[in-house]
């Protein structure tokens, strides 16, 4: 609290606002330092030790935790599941999000209300989303089976989560339902920044709708699209709630984060879980590098 008594005059004399600036940023620095950066350091530190509440001492074990991760079949299958979620989610969210954004952009006064409806799934608690879909997917009374039976697509009720691939896809659908609005909103903002004159000029030159989209729209929303795709990737990478609520800890649909949670809080292998979370973090950082670089570019722009 010594900084609090720093006289304002001295801050002015020191040629700037260094004192006041530090004072205002200090709570944030302290909070983030103690609750994010310090635990981050601890994660690295503990991941090369054996930290296990059931066993005495925390000896240094080097990379043993990391090495045993690679031969752990649970880790392998949860990594596989995570990759499936990421690929399916990014492809569908991008295609669907761009389509939704184009549609929204062409609307007049109705846009505001349609946009509110589109945003809604994103704004709801993911747990509630998952429960809504859990009931839809219910093998005995779910509306999915009901509709497909009524349409004659299937002749008897399916237990969707008995099959790994249908389980993975149905969980991906719930995640996509929640995250597609993000892509739509980001791309819509990109579309709105395109000057209308470009389209008029192209129309005069006789360019069709498809070539206008390919030559003008797509290149000019490239930046927004890159951000949206990075977001989709990171968010799908961190999928937890949907898979957990819809199918619990089942190995068929378990994600890397569920695996981290299981290792640490169910099996109480703290350091093993931390080694895994370090790997997940680096993988997530690698895919979101574009995101960070863009943020930095923006920071140094002025």
């Amino acid at each position: 609290m010594t900084a609090l008594s720093l006289p304002r005059r001295r801050a002015r004399i020191s040629g700037g606002d260094a004192g006041l600036g530090l004072l205002m940023a200090l709570p944030i620095i302290l909070l983030m330092g103690s609750l994010v950066f310090w635990p981050l350091v601890m994660t690295f530190w503990d991941s090369v030790h054996r930290v296990d509440p059931m066993r005495f001492g925390t000896p240094f074990v080097g990379l043993r935790n990391y090495l045993s991760l690679f031969s752990d079949s649970d880790v392998q299958s949860s990594a596989f599941n995570t990759i499936v979620y990421v690929v399916v989610a990014v492809v569908i969210e991008t295609a669907g999000g761009v389509a939704a954004a184009l549609l929204l952009n062409s609307l007049g006064r109705a846009r505001k209300w349609v946009l509110a409806a589109v945003i809604l799934p994103w704004a709801l608690p993911p747990v509630v989303n998952s429960i809504i879909w859990l009931w839809i997917y219910n093998p005995s009374y779910g509306v999915l089976n009901g509709v497909l039976r009524a349409l004659g697509v299937i002749s008897q009720n399916h237990v969707w989560f008995n099959d790994r691939w249908s389980a993975l896809l149905l969980i991906a659908v719930v995640h996509i339902w929640r995250m597609l609005p993000i892509t739509a909103v980001i791309v819509l903002a990109g579309l709105q920044s395109i000057p209308q004159e470009l389209y008029e000029a192209a129309r005069i030159d006789g360019a069709g709708a498809l070539s206008r989209f390919g030559r003008i729209t797509l290149p000019l929303i490239g930046g927004s699209l890159a951000i949206a795709m990075t977001q989709s990737t990171v968010l799908a990478f961190n999928l937890f709630d949907e898979a957990w609520i819809l199918n619990g800890s089942s190995g068929d649909t378990r994600t890397l984060l569920i695996q981290v949670y299981m290792s640490a809080f169910q099996d109480l292998h703290f350091s093993y879980g931390m080694a895994l979370s370090v790997l997940v973090m680096f993988a997530s950082l690698a895919v979101s590098l574009i995101y960070v670089i863009r943020g930095k570019a923006e920071t140094s722009a002025e």
Partner: peptide
């Protein structure tokens, strides 16, 4: 801002 890119769960155990 860079912490936006790391999963919040990375720091959860410590």
């Amino acid at each position: 801002v860079a912490t936006l890119a790391i999963p919040a769960y990375t720091v959860m155990i410590p």
